[in-house]
Design a protein around this nucleic acid. Structure first.
Lengths: 193, 193, 193, 193
DNA sequence: GATGAATGAGCATTCATTCAT
DNA sequence: GATGAATGAATGCTCATTCAT
């Protein structure tokens, strides 16, 4: 119970102030305990943040997996649309986790780099594989090469939108999402014919 | 001379450890001076980093402006291609500046936020305006609406590639760039007729 | 316990070196703790010194109030005599507090000025009022104007003696006190008739 | 020229911030030179302030001597009156020097203590001697004992007023001065009869 | 489980001082 | 005479961590 609250507070503090700015005191304050008490649950700051980062990455992963599970039977464009929209929705609603995630990915504390790298690779290949699998099932005529291409292109667009989550205001972001979906439509129209 | 070296060291440290983790000591060590000496050139840490950020943003801006100047007369696809390729090249060669830039954009120290926001807006609107202008000149028949759309879509792709600079190894990044250019081709083919 | 010791050490250091010269290190050394530990009890240097000053002023105030309470029923000359003698005794025995008090009054750190001013005013008006009240009770025939005058004159003499506490050796100070009391006798003789 | 300006600036800074708060930088700024330049004229901070303190003490001494010279032929009450009034005027017009003087006297930097003590003694005995001499000349019938007593009492009152220079606003100070003169009148009336 | 008290290490910053120019 | 550049030492303060209770 308390342990979990500490974890959440750590994430929040990390998202607000980065690793170096997220102090044990601030975390403790957020949970309404004293800094010394954190050490009953976590060996030290590094361990706490390792746990926090794992939690962020895993819950993000799980969430996307769930979405994927829900839409997997739908037509391919619908899948793409849903992933983009839900991902944005997820991250817009959890700005602090997203912030933490972004700075984590971009400038990870040295201790975490190997773990992070492994996770990213895992996530990416899972996403790629799942998407290509579905396309192959739905469009058995299209060459594997083309399918991989379209999947990778989708990832570029996803990444572009992801980067923009933090930069644009809500309305403008909506518009960008529409534009992004238009791109995918365009790609599919051409490739799938 | 020393002042410049301090600036560069600050950028490097910021890229490695974020604002809070980049200490005056680390910067001084990199320049082979004592921390106290930094204060002869910069009033305090904040001022030093403001100077560093300005330098990054301005040199990035100048660089893109130059590229734009060089390719502006070329066909529109060529323009897009060149911007993507050169931007990636620029940032790949200056990983530390880019890292600094990315963490700056994603989790700016509160003191810098207003300045940063102003700059981003300026850069974005300049890019959009320059690109739409060129398209209007080259395709006077296409509606303004469509031109804006394609420009914004280009920006999504740019952002996607930008985000991936840090994530992918060199070769894979090359491939992603090719895919990105393919997307633009696809979009142009359809919209421009 | 420790908190109190820190307070006393702060007063002592302040009396020795003024506000700026009294460093957290010197205070900590005096208490046999490390400077960082002070911050467990006091938020910062300013708060510590505010507490110290309050303590000095209040204990001085309380002391004088007690004296006044004890002699209030005595003849007026006796009251004046006792106040002077006991004040000097009090301050002679607590040279460091007195020194701190004096430099506080004469060159207060800007942060403390308002608090100090308020206290001084309070003390002064209390003293004046109490003394005039007693005189009015004991000499109902003397005009208020005259009573105020004699009270104010007493304060001048008090201030003179107070200033001299630090300047004269013990014996010479005794003699000055006698002279001061003689002045008051002279004033009373004339005014009271 | 510059040397003198530095001296004056040092006094001013000392009066504003005490010895520890009066930095070489602040002094240099006031003279519009760089801190390094001060060292051309003074060996170090201590020497500068020693010079400054000497200057304050001596000019104060000289001033009082001049006043004394001017009024020495006048009746004794007039002498007392003038000394009080002119001393207050002098110090009111040079609040910074006075402040410096007061904190100097009350909490002198350890290095200066012996010099200061010697000076104070010299000043006090000169004042006492001059005044008693004059009284003896003007009232040859009064016993030496009585004369010394009245002189010392005058010094108490002077000290009281001196202490109040910093505490009271202008108008209230005027009133206190009147009261002080009244005291002296009272003393003279009685002793001189 | 929780915390009061303490500390070592480190941080940004200031300051008196030096020295070559 | 004056200063730009540099620094050692110190200062107020923060922070992760420990440990007895």
């Amino acid at each position: 119970m308390t342990k979990e609250k500490i974890l959440k507070a750590a994430i929040n503090q990390y998202s607000l102030h980065n690793y170096h700015g997220a102090t044990m005191k601030k975390i403790a304050d957020e949970v309404n305990i004293k800094p010394a008490s954190i050490y009953f649950f976590y060996k030290n700051k590094e361990e706490l943040f390792l746990a926090a980062f794992k939690w962020i990455l895993e819950s993000h992963f799980t969430y996307i997996q769930n979405i994927m599970g829900e839409v997997i039977e739908q037509p391919i464009l619908k899948i793409y649309q849903t992933i983009i929209r839900k991902t944005v929705a997820y991250h817009s609603e959890r700005q602090n986790e997203t912030n933490a995630y972004i700075s984590l990915v971009n400038s990870p504390p040295a201790e975490i780099k190997p773990f992070l790298h492994h996770h990213m690779q895992h996530f990416d290949s899972w996403m790629e594989q799942t998407l290509t699998e579905q396309m192959q099932k739905k469009y058995p005529d299209i060459s594997e090469e083309k399918i991989i291409k379209i999947t990778k292109q989708f990832l570029i667009i996803m990444d572009g939108i992801f980067w923009e989550i933090n930069l644009y205001e809500k309305e403008e972001l909506e518009r960008q999402i529409e534009y992004a979906i238009n791109i995918i439509e365009c790609l599919l129209r051409e490739e799938v014919k």
